[in-house]
Measured scan of single mutants.
Amino acid sequence: SDPSEDRAPESARVGNIPSSTSALKVPQLKVAESAQGPAAAHTTDTAGYNAMEESVSREKPELTASTERVNKRMSMVVSGLTPEEFMLVYKFARKHHITLTNLITEETTHVVMKTDAEFVCERTLKYFLGIAGGKWVVSYFWVTQSIKERKMLNEHDFEVRGDVVNGRNHQGPKRARESQDRKIFRGLEICCYGPFTNMPTDQLEWMVQLCGASVVKELSSFTLGTGVHPIVVVQPDAWTEDNGFHAIGQMCEAPVVTREWVLDSVALYQCQELDTYLIPQIPHSHY
């Protein structure tokens, strides 16, 4: 159930021909089969995070001529859309010479989310990475209204306002976009420790780096000194050995919190207090 199309920051360009055919990675995205229709094609874990990302398996898109002007500035990904909605975005992107990729990268400028009429969405990996990267996180209605009015409308009017977990109007995407000089995790050293489900560890690490944190791979690698705040992030329900995560405190002095601390902080683009996310640790033995 991992969102495989989000696994690594590679891009698939639509609308320009790469210098070599080997560089072309066409979105071959799968549809989750469901008797209840597209709305039930998501699996949500206890964290309220949509693990099964969206989309559609299609034939290789038709490439435009390399001489045609390509908008190098805009690059989009989509999240939560049905196959039909994805194809509408594809046509919109081609019309406006926008790069459409299946994986979010540093070059991505827009994340197009499936939302309700009030621009509230589910939480997906692309949603988190879009906010963390200060990108435009907009409703699919931006595409449909632009098509209806036959011009590209202003993104401000379609920015995602909230999500089904953290609140319907928290304005996290807007706050992140306007606060890239004040990253929420700066001054923190974060170790993403142990197993994680539904989200590859490297993507979680990239997320906290985008928010200004330094990533530490091992508990023994924390910088011990003033001005640096170490934090260990774990996902308790992913551990097979009972309560192993309670013993992390015996290996390092850092506070240990659940992954929800990261996800909530990123969604709201406000660093949350650790208290409600802390995992009790077995104290050091004193002999």
Rank of each mutant, 00 (worst) to 15 (best):
1 S>A: 06
2 D>V: 05
3 P>I: 11
3 P>V: 06
4 S>L: 10
4 S>K: 07
5 E>Y: 10
5 E>V: 05
6 D>N: 13
6 D>G: 07
7 R>L: 09
11 S>G: 03
11 S>R: 05
13 R>F: 04
14 V>W: 14
15 G>I: 04
15 G>L: 11
15 G>T: 12
15 G>S: 08
16 N>D: 07
17 I>W: 04
18 P>S: 07
19 S>H: 09
21 T>V: 08
22 S>W: 06
22 S>V: 07
23 A>E: 14
26 V>I: 04
27 P>T: 12
29 L>C: 10
30 K>T: 12
31 V>I: 03
33 E>K: 09
33 E>I: 06
35 A>H: 03
39 A>G: 01
40 A>C: 10
41 A>G: 05
42 H>P: 12
42 H>S: 04
44 T>F: 11
45 D>N: 15
47 A>S: 12
48 G>L: 04
49 Y>L: 07
49 Y>C: 11
50 N>M: 04
50 N>Q: 11
52 M>E: 09
53 E>Y: 09
54 E>K: 14
54 E>R: 07
54 E>T: 05
55 S>H: 10
55 S>L: 05
56 V>A: 12
57 S>Y: 10
57 S>K: 00
59 E>S: 09
60 K>E: 05
61 P>V: 06
63 L>K: 04
64 T>C: 15
64 T>H: 13
66 S>I: 08
68 E>L: 11
69 R>M: 02
70 V>P: 12
73 R>A: 14
74 M>L: 06
76 M>R: 01
76 M>F: 11
78 V>N: 12
80 G>D: 02
81 L>R: 01
81 L>I: 07
82 T>G: 07
83 P>T: 10
86 F>K: 05
86 F>H: 02
89 V>L: 07
89 V>Y: 02
90 Y>R: 04
91 K>V: 13
95 K>S: 07
97 H>L: 09
98 I>S: 07
98 I>E: 02
99 T>C: 14
99 T>R: 15
102 N>W: 04
103 L>I: 04
107 E>R: 07
108 T>C: 06
108 T>N: 01
108 T>R: 00
109 T>Q: 00
109 T>R: 00
110 H>P: 01
115 T>Y: 00
116 D>K: 02
119 F>Y: 06
119 F>S: 08
120 V>Y: 02
121 C>L: 00
121 C>T: 03
126 K>H: 00
129 L>S: 04
129 L>A: 06
129 L>C: 15
130 G>S: 03
131 I>L: 04
135 K>S: 14
136 W>G: 00
139 S>V: 02
139 S>G: 06
140 Y>D: 15
141 F>Q: 15
141 F>W: 15
143 V>N: 02
147 I>G: 11
147 I>S: 09
150 R>F: 10
151 K>T: 09
155 E>F: 08
157 D>A: 06
158 F>L: 00
158 F>P: 00
158 F>I: 00
162 G>S: 01
163 D>A: 00
164 V>P: 05
164 V>W: 07
164 V>R: 05
166 N>Y: 02
168 R>S: 08
170 H>I: 04
171 Q>P: 02
171 Q>V: 08
172 G>D: 00
172 G>A: 04
173 P>S: 02
173 P>L: 01
173 P>A: 10
175 R>V: 04
181 D>Q: 02
183 K>A: 14
183 K>E: 00
185 F>T: 00
187 G>V: 03
188 L>W: 06
189 E>P: 12
189 E>Y: 02
191 C>T: 06
193 Y>V: 15
194 G>P: 05
194 G>L: 02
195 P>L: 14
197 T>L: 11
198 N>T: 15
201 T>P: 08
201 T>Q: 06
202 D>S: 15
203 Q>S: 05
203 Q>L: 13
204 L>S: 02
206 W>L: 12
207 M>L: 14
209 Q>G: 14
209 Q>M: 12
211 C>K: 00
218 E>Q: 14
220 S>W: 15
222 F>K: 10
222 F>S: 11
223 T>M: 13
223 T>Q: 14
226 T>A: 15
226 T>P: 13
226 T>L: 08
226 T>V: 06
228 V>L: 14
231 I>M: 08
231 I>K: 01
233 V>E: 01
234 V>T: 09
237 D>V: 15
242 D>L: 12
243 N>W: 12
243 N>K: 15
244 G>R: 09
248 I>M: 09
249 G>S: 12
250 Q>A: 13
252 C>A: 11
255 P>T: 02
256 V>W: 11
256 V>D: 03
256 V>Q: 10
257 V>A: 15
257 V>Q: 02
258 T>L: 07
258 T>I: 07
258 T>D: 06
258 T>M: 05
258 T>C: 15
258 T>R: 07
259 R>W: 03
259 R>G: 02
261 W>K: 01
262 V>C: 09
262 V>M: 10
263 L>T: 05
265 S>T: 04
269 Y>G: 14
270 Q>M: 15
270 Q>F: 09
270 Q>L: 09
271 C>M: 02
272 Q>V: 12
273 E>T: 08
274 L>V: 11
275 D>L: 12
279 I>P: 07
281 Q>L: 13
281 Q>V: 07
281 Q>H: 06
281 Q>A: 11
281 Q>M: 04
282 I>W: 14
282 I>T: 12
283 P>A: 11
284 H>R: 14
284 H>P: 09
284 H>S: 12
284 H>M: 15
285 S>I: 03
285 S>V: 10
287 Y>M: 11
